[in-house]
């Protein structure tokens, strides 16, 4: 894809003055008509950069997000729960790979994305900087963290950038199992012994507020929101989605027999929505800055896994070089991308 981008730049240089305006008008018209932008279409540099930033952060979140739950695979209370948890963590890896592929259609290589994650130059969701202290956390993550993610991701299935939207369709289908297994896990604990019930409540208490922070800063403080919505990358504002999530969760918590740790949650007849308490944005900013409970641990483990896997990648590459007939060998960097034909 990199070569294609270079092509386009070369073509752009050849164009007469004013050609960019024509291209930009075509792009704006496509977005306005709710058409999808595809990898080889002309797009504004800022649109491309904004998508790379968002998709990279999204992909990194899926990959880092494997860690908090993987901690519990070896300590799952039954074979059934263990098989479910392994399948879920494997899905997260898959989601990361769909999203990296989609990001690569914009001309940013996989290595570059990983390097930036490892160097702390691209972010992942702050939620994964909180620890998973008990087994009930696996349930709370499924219900609340994946629930918030789904609320965010369903509108992304209609994102203006085709490859991102297609990746999200696949992800959303799979995410639904994640949320339901978490809810069922909490329900089992909630109906169990007093100690199990207490464990479930404690997990919900700890994950509720960070889950609300997953929707990002309030609309008036969100740096990218307005532009992303104009480009139809985002379809709803942070606060709108957060409100939707709260309204969904309140009755679900009741059915679980657990409470949400916010005394200010109450139904607002006039708005037809729930009021809820004030989020501690200072905590959000601190975790974002790297001062959360597990920031160093998460990134450290990711770097270690990458370094310790180097010999596997090297061996596979050496094997391929030795055994692949030259006629079948693909160049190391992709000059084209089949996405363009899709």
């Amino acid at each position: 894809m990199a070569a294609v981008t270079a092509d386009q730049t070369a073509q752009a240089a050849d164009r007469p003055q004013g050609a960019d305006e024509v291209l930009e008008a075509a792009f704006d018209a496509a977005v306005a008509a709710d058409e999808r932008i595809e990898p080889r279409d002309w797009m504004p540099d800022a649109y491309r950069a904004s998508l790379v930033r968002q998709m990279a952060q999204h992909a990194h979140s899926e990959i880092i997000g494997m860690q908090p739950e993987a901690n519990w695979i070896s300590r799952a209370p039954s074979l059934r729960r263990k098989a479910i948890l392994m399948a879920k963590v494997q899905d997260e890896a898959g989601h990361g790979l769909y999203l990296y592929s989609a990001a690569e259609t914009l001309g940013t290589g996989r290595e570059e994305l990983l390097d930036k994650l490892h160097a702390g130059r691209q972010r992942y969701s702050s939620i994964f900087n909180y620890p998973t202290l008990t087994w009930a956390d696996v349930g709370a993550i499924g219900w609340l963290v994946d629930g918030a993610a789904i609320t965010n991701q369903v509108p992304l299935c209609r994102c203006s950038y085709g490859p991102y939207a297609r990746a999200m369709v696949r992800i959303c289908k799979e995410e639904s199992f994640h949320q339901r297994q978490g809810y069922e896990l909490l329900l089992t604990l909630s109906r169990g012994t007093p100690a199990q019930r207490e464990m479930a409540q404690d997990a919900v208490n700890r994950w509720w507020w960070p889950s609300l922070m997953m929707f990002g800063p309030p609309d008036d403080a969100s740096a990218h929101s307005a532009q992303s919505m104009a480009w139809k990358i985002k379809r709803h504002s942070n606060d709108e989605l957060r409100q939707r999530f709260v309204d969904i969760c309140v009755p679900q918590a009741e059915a679980l027999g657990l409470t949400l740790p916010d005394p200010d949650i109450r139904w607002n007849e006039e708005r037809g929505q729930h009021d809820f308490g004030t989020i501690d944005w200072k905590e959000f900013q601190e975790v974002l800055k790297g001062n959360g409970p597990c920031n160093e641990q998460r990134l450290g483990q990711r770097r270690r896994a990458h370094e310790e896997g180097a010999w596997v990648r090297d061996a596979a590459a050496a094997y391929a070089e030795k055994h692949t007939a030259p006629a079948h060998a693909a160049p190391r960097t992709a000059a084209g991308n089949g996405e363009a034909t899709a």
Partner: peptide
């Protein structure tokens, strides 16, 4: 060690054609 990119086409069941599913990196 950067692996080449591959496009993946999946036939969902017999009688249907392969359709593009996505892409991935692999050494061979």
């Amino acid at each position: 060690t950067e692996w080449p990119l591959w496009e993946v086409f999946v036939r969902s069941r017999r009688g249907l054609s392969h359709t593009h599913a996505g892409s991935l990196h692999a050494p061979d």
